[in-house]
Design a protein around this nucleic acid. Structure first.
Length: 795
DNA sequence: GACGTGGCCGTTTTT
DNA sequence: CGGCCACGTC
C-alpha cells in the first residue's frame, strides 16, 4: 500500500551510513526516531505519504528481532483488514513466520477477539452474534412498536445514530450521564428505545458494531484484575489512523496500556474524515496531554507524490484553521501539471475520465488508475462510461456480495446454528425457504418472547410446548427439530462442509434450483461462491469453523477486496480512498452541493451550517488529492443529473479556488488546453492578466496564456449561462459505440456458452463488461437464464 | 400465508 | 430512475 521509498533515498537520508542495522537503514531520521523510541507514549504525526506504514512495520520488526519481544505481546490496530494484512505480510518479511502470532487487526476485529474472552463480564455467551446495521434497524423498529413510538414521527435511523453515538462515547443504556442529558423529548424517547434495544440484543446474545469496542472497555473497567493481566500481556500497543478513533476506542486503549503506557499512535489530523461516525480529532490533538511525557514526532517528508500534487493539496488544506500544521516536502520534482476538466454534463465528465484512461493505459497499468467521488451514487455514470470503453474496473462500496438476499439467507441459517438465540437470524431463516410460517406466526412468537423475556427461537419453542402456536405449531416444531439436528451435525465440521450441509438441509439450495426466475441461476452460483469463501477461510484461518467464518464476514470492509494483482480501474468514494495510493487519480464531481456536500452547507431548516463540517469536507478533498503519485485530474460538470432524472446546473466547488493556478492546466469542454498562468483568486472576477480578450465569465475565467492551443473558451460556457451547454460536446467521435454483439472473453451474441449445470446454450444477449457481464442464455430443456459471465465458458 | 402491483421515498460518508 | 414497503388478491 505504501510506496517503496524513492530512488536513491537510502543513501541521501539523514546519516544512514553503511553497517547500520538493515531495519533502520531505509529510514530517515524522524522515522528512525519513531522506531527506536519504544518505551512510553509516542505520537507520530505522519503527513500523507510520509511512510507511516513503514514506521509501524519496522517498529514491530524491531521490537521482535532486536528487543526480543514475543509477537503475541504486540497489539497493532489498523483501519481496514487490507491494511492489517499488508502490515502482517511486511512484518513477516522481516521476522518470518512468527508474525502470524501478532495481535494485528482492525479495532473491531480485535474487539471481537477480546469480547470472546470477556463475554461473561458483560452478560454474553461466547457464541454471540454480530448484528449488522440491517439487523440493528429491525430490532429498533420492533422496539419502537413495542414502546408505541410512531415510525412516522421518528425515523429508526435517528435512534440508530443516537445509540451509536452513546456507544462511541462508551455510555451504556443505563449510564447516569445519559439520563442527565435526556432533557429534550426526543432524547428521552431515544434513551428508552436504547434501553429496550439493549435488552433485546442481550436476549438474542447479539452485539452491534459499537458494542465491539464499548463492551470490552466496560469489561476491563469492571474488573481491574483482568484489565491488569491483559495490559501486562500486551507490552506494546500500536495504532494506525489514530485521527479516526473515537472516545470508546481511546478508552479501550487506556485500559490496554494501563500497566506500561507503551502506546504508539500514528495519524494525521489533516486526514480526519470520520467525525460523523464518532471520531474525535481531540484524541490526536490532545494526545500529549492525555499521555504525559509523550514523544511527538512529525513526519513531513513525502515519498509519494510529485511536488505539484503536494503543493496543490497543501494549499487546499491550509485553509483549515484547526490543525496541527505540518509542512510537507518532497524532492521528487514538479512532475505533470494538475488537469482541471470542465465538462458539460456528468455524463461527459465520465466519458472524459474513460477516454483519458483509455489513452494512457499503454503507459500505465489499469490498476494504477483510480476515480474518487463524494457519494456512491456518482459511480453509476462512471461505470457506464468505463463499460462503453471496455475498461475493466472494480467498484468499492455499492451493493456488496454479503448483502445479497440469498447470501444473507444462508448466513442467517449459519448464525442461528452457531448462536441458538440469534433472533434476527431466526426470523430470516424461518421464512426462507418458505415453509408456511408467516407474519401472523412470527408476531405471535414475538409477543410471547417479550412476555417471557426470552429470545425469539426460545420463545417459539416455548410457544409450541404450551400449545399456543395454533396451526403453525407443527411447522414450528419441524423447523426447530431440523435446526437442532443440524446444529449437532455440523458441530465438528469445517466451515465449508458445514455450509454445504446447511444449504442442503435447509432447503435453500433446492428452492433456488426449482425457482423459475431467470436470476435464480445467478443466486445459486452466489451460494456456490459463498461455499468457496468458506473453504478458503477454513484452509487459511487459525480456526476453520463456521463461527470464525461468520466473524470475519461481519467485519470485512469493501476495500479489503482490492487486490494489487488485478489490472482494473478502481472506483470508490473519497472516504474509501484513505490509506490507498495510485499513479493516476481522478477526483470528479467537484461541485458545490457535492463537495462540500449540501448537507453541511446548511440553508435547510434541519441543520445550521457548521464550519467544522466544512473543514472536514475540505480534508476529504485533501485526502483524495494526496492519493495520486504522478498525475492528478480534477473535474466538475456544469450540469448534473439528479436521482429523480432532472438535470440541474451546478457550480464549481469552492475548494477549487484554493488550488494554485500555476499548477493547473484547464481542459475545457471545447477540447482545448489553456494553462492557467493567471488564475483568478475568486469567482466572478476576471483574472488579473494582461491578456486582452478574456471574456467575463463567472467561473474559471482564466484567460489564455501565451503559447496555448484553443485559446478561447468557446460557445456555451464563455457566455456564463450554465444551461447553454446542454446537449453539446458529447465527443461522440471518441466514444466507441455500444456494441453488444461481442462480449469479452470470447462470448458472442448468437454464439454458444457452456454452464456446469445447464450444459451448452445459445447466447441471446450480453449486457455489461467482463466477468460481471450479464449473459442471457437459452439452454435446451432448461429455458432462458440470465447468468453472470464468470460462471460461463464460451463453447 | 404467498405472491403481485402500485405508490412513495430518497442519496453523505462506513467499521 | 430504482428500491422498498404497504396493500390488495388468490
Amino acid at each position: 500500500m505504501e510506496p517503496q521509498q524513492g530512488n536513491g533515498y537510502g543513501s541521501e537520508a539523514g546519516g544512514d551510513q553503511g553497517g547500520e542495522h538493515p531495519l533502520l537503514a531505509m529510514l530517515n531520521a524522524e522515522q528512525k526516531q519513531a522506531v527506536l523510541h519504544t518505551e512510553g507514549p509516542v505520537l507520530v504525526l505522519a503527513g500523507a505519504g510520509s511512510g507511516k506504514t513503514r514506521v509501524i512495520t519496522h517498529r514491530i520488526a524491531w521490537l521482535i528481532s532486536e528487543l526480543g519481544v514475543f509477537p503475541w505481546q504486540i497489539l497493532a490496530m489498523t483501519f481496514t483488514n487490507k491494511a492489517a494484512g499488508e502490515m502482517r505480510e511486511r512484518v513477516a518479511h522481516a521476522v518470518g513466520d512468527s508474525a502470524s502470532q501478532l495481535w494485528l487487526g482492525t479495532f473491531h476485529s480485535v474487539g471481537v477477539r477480546l469480547l470472546r474472552q470477556l463475554a461473561g463480564y458483560v452478560g454474553l455467551q461466547p457464541t454471540f452474534s454480530i448484528y449488522d446495521t440491517d439487523d440493528q434497524q429491525r430490532v429498533i423498529v420492533r422496539v419502537m412498536k413495542a414502546l408505541g413510538v410512531s415510525e412516522a414521527t421518528h425515523k429508526p435511523k435517528m435512534f440508530a445514530s443516537y445509540i451509536d453515538r452513546a456507544k462511541n462515547r462508551c455510555m451504556g443504556p443505563h449510564d447516569p450521564r445519559l439520563k442527565e442529558l435526556a432533557v429534550s423529548a426526543f432524547d428521552k424517547k431515544a434513551l428508552s428505545v436504547y434501553q429496550a434495544y439493549e435488552k433485546e440484543m442481550r436476549l438474542a446474545n447479539a452485539v452491534d458494531f459499537g458494542d465491539l469496542i464499548m463492551l470490552p472497555a466496560q469489561a476491563l473497567a469492571s474488573d481491574p484484575n483482568v484489565c491488569h493481566n491483559l495490559a501486562q500481556r500486551f507490552r506494546y500497543v500500536l495504532v494506525d489512523e489514530f485521527q479516526d478513533t473515537n472516545f470508546a476506542q481511546f478508552e479501550l486503549l487506556k485500559y490496554l496500556t494501563s500497566v506500561h503506557g507503551n502506546l504508539c499512535v500514528v495519524g494525521d489530523d489533516d486526514q480526519s474524515i470520520y467525525s460523523w461516525r464518532g471520531a474525535e480529532v481531540g484524541n490526536i490533538l490532545g494526545f500529549p496531554k492525555m499521555f504525559d511525557g509523550a514523544e511527538v514526532i512529525k513526519l513531513e517528508r513525502n515519498y509519494r507524490s510529485t511536488e505539484t500534487i503536494l503543493r496543490a493539496s497543501t494549499a487546499v488544506v491550509s485553509r483549515n484553521t484547526t490543525r496541527h500544521g505540518k509542512v510537507l516536502w518532497t524532492d521528487r520534482g514538479l512532475g505533470d501539471p494538475i488537469t482541471l476538466h470542465v465538462a458539460a454534463s456528468d455524463r461527459d465528465e465520465a466519458d472524459w475520465v474513460a477516454r483519458q484512461i483509455d489513452r494512457r493505459q499503454h503507459e500505465t497499468s489499469l490498476g494504477e488508475f483510480a476515480v474518487f467521488y463524494r457519494t456512491n451514487a456518482c459511480s453509476r455514470v462512471l461505470e457506464d462510461s468505463l463499460r462503453r470503453f471496455r475498461l475493466p474496473y472494480v467498484l468499492i462500496g455499492g451493493m456488496k456480495f454479503y448483502e445479497r438476499a440469498e447470501v444473507k439467507d444462508a448466513l442467517a441459517w449459519c448464525r442461528l446454528l452457531v448462536n441458538q438465540d440469534d433472533s434476527a437470524a431466526w426470523m430470516r431463516a424461518v421464512g426462507s425457504p418458505r415453509r408456511g410460517i408467516g407474519d401472523t406466526t412470527i408476531e405471535a412468537v414475538q409477543k410471547h418472547a417479550s412476555q417471557i423475556e426470552r429470545s425469539l427461537p426460545a420463545a417459539a419453542q416455548d410457544l409450541v410446548r404450551l400449545g399456543g402456536a395454533g396451526r403453525a405449531a407443527e411447522k414450528l416444531k419441524t423447523f426447530h427439530d431440523l435446526v437442532e439436528r443440524l446444529r449437532e451435525e455440523i458441530e465438528p465440521m469445517r466451515a465449508d462442509q458445514a455450509g454445504a450441509r446447511i444449504l442442503e438441509a435447509s432447503g435453500l439450495k433446492k428452492a433456488l434450483q426449482e425457482d423459475k426466475d431467470p436470476d435464480a441461476a445467478d443466486r445459486l452460483e452466489n451460494l456456490q461462491q459463498l461455499l468457496a469463501a468458506m473453504g478458503e477461510h477454513a484452509d487459511s484461518a487459525d480456526d476453520p469453523g463456521l463461527r470464525s467464518f461468520l466473524e470475519t464476514v461481519a467485519l470485512v470492509s469493501d476495500v479489503d477486496k482490492l487486490s494489487d494483482a488485478q489490472a482494473r480501474v478502481s472506483l470508490m468514494t473519497m472516504h474509501s480512498a484513505k490509506g490507498l495510493e495510485f499513479d493516476v487519480a481522478f477526483v470528479v464531481g467537484l461541485e458545490e452541493g457535492l463537495l462540500p456536500h449540501a448537507n453541511v452547507l446548511g440553508g435547510t431548516a434541519e441543520r445550521e451550517a457548521d464550519p467544522r463540517d466544512l473543514e472536514e469536507e475540505r480534508r476529504l478533498f485533501y485526502v483524495a488529492m494526496t492519493r495520486a503519485r504522478k498525475k492528478l485530474h480534477l473535474s466538475h460538470a456544469r450540469l448534473r443529473r439528479r436521482f429523480d432524472g432532472r438535470e440541474m446546473p451546478s457550480e464549481p466547488s469552492r475548494f477549487l479556488q484554493a488550488v494554485p493556478r500555476d499548477l493547473v492546466q484547464i481542459d475545457d469542454a471545447g477540447h482545448g488546453f489553456r494553462s492557467a498562468s493567471s488564475w483568478g483568486s475568486s469567482w466572478g472576477q476576471p483574472a488579473r492578466s494582461s491578456s486582452s480578450a478574456a471574456p467575463a465569465r463567472p467561473t474559471w475565467g482564466a484567460p489564455a496564456g501565451p503559447g496555448n492551443r484553443a485559446a478561447q473558451a468557446t460557445g456555451a460556457w464563455s457566455t456564463g449561462n450554465p444551461l447553454a451547454g446542454r446537449g453539446t460536446a458529447h465527443h461522440d467521435d471518441d466514444v466507441p459505440a455500444i456494441d453488444r454483439s461481442e462480449g469479452e472473453a470470447g462470448f458472442q451474441v448468437g454464439g454458444k456458452a457452456l454452464h456446469v449445470r445447464f450444459g451448452t446454450g445459445k447466447i441471446l444477449d450480453i449486457a455489461g463488461y467482463g466477468g460481471e457481464a450479464q449473459l442471457t442464455v437459452q439452454f435446451p430443456g432448461v429455458g432462458i437464464k440470465k447468468i453472470v459471465a464468470r460462471f460461463l465458458k464460451p463453447a
